[in-house]
């Protein structure tokens, strides 16, 4: 039976429950301050992006890699797999169906990980705020470090958002992964409230 330490994984069929991990995410304490400061510097200067182009925001990410805006000068690079990425960029509105995939991707990333919500849709639903199928506030489902408003934000605004995120990381305030682990039950309850056909493990390693 499940206790406080393990997750029930009730969404999975009975015979598959043994195949998946049922451990809860754990909080990883930061190291001593001066070491952590150095590590945070390296994290801020080597942000690898997992871009999740759910909406129009995906179009606005392309120019960032071109000669005109060139985010590689900040040490940022696109990374095609969540295992290696440290920054999840949500590019626009999220329907219930895409939110499920975003949660999977986010949970597969390794601590420390950061989330940037791109565009008004992630802030309050944007122009889809009264739609029956798009979420209104991303921060009820995932810990968001930086919101970049706009519909859609220009690449300059996105770069400003990156600067904001780097400042947060260097100050040691970007502890979204630990926050997710601490308030795991709250996040899960919110996620499960709208994702009614939860047919995956409660925590996707």
């Amino acid at each position: 039976m499940h206790n406080k330490e393990t997750l029930p994984n009730l969404g999975l069929p009975e015979h598959e429950r043994d195949l998946f991990c049922d451990a809860r995410p754990r909080v990883s304490k930061p190291l001593a301050s001066y070491i952590e400061k150095f590590l945070n510097w390296s994290r801020a200067n080597s942000l690898w992006i997992l871009a999740y182009g759910t909406g129009c925001g995906a179009i606005e990410l392309r120019p960032l890699f071109t000669a005109r805006f060139d985010i590689s000068r900040y040490g940022m690079a696109p990374r095609p797999t969540p295992r290696q990425a440290s920054l999840l960029m949500i590019g626009g509105y999220l329907s219930v169906k895409t939110l499920k995939r975003v949660i999977r991707s986010y949970e597969q990333m390794q601590n420390p990980k950061f989330v940037i919500g791109l565009g008004s849709c992630t802030v309050n639903g944007g122009m889809y705020w009264d739609s029956y199928n798009t979420i209104n506030r991303l921060d009820h489902y995932l810990p968001v470090d930086v919101y970049i408003t706009g519909c859609m934000p220009r690449p300059e605004a996105i770069i400003a958002g990156f600067e904001q995120l780097k400042k947060r990381i260097k100050d040691g305030r970007a502890e979204g992964a630990n926050q997710y682990a601490e308030q795991f039950d709250w996040y899960k309850a919110n996620q499960k409230k709208i994702i009614t056909d939860w047919n995956m493990p409660d925590y996707n390693w």
């Binding site: 754990r26 990883s28 150095f38 590590l39 390296s42 994290r43 200067n45 080597s46 440290s86 390794q110 601590n111 420390p112 992964a177």
Partner: peptide, 9 residues
């Protein structure tokens, strides 16, 4: 440095 500084794996 950043890759080695990941807290979980």
């Amino acid at each position: 440095i950043k890759n080695n500084a990941k807290r979980t794996g």
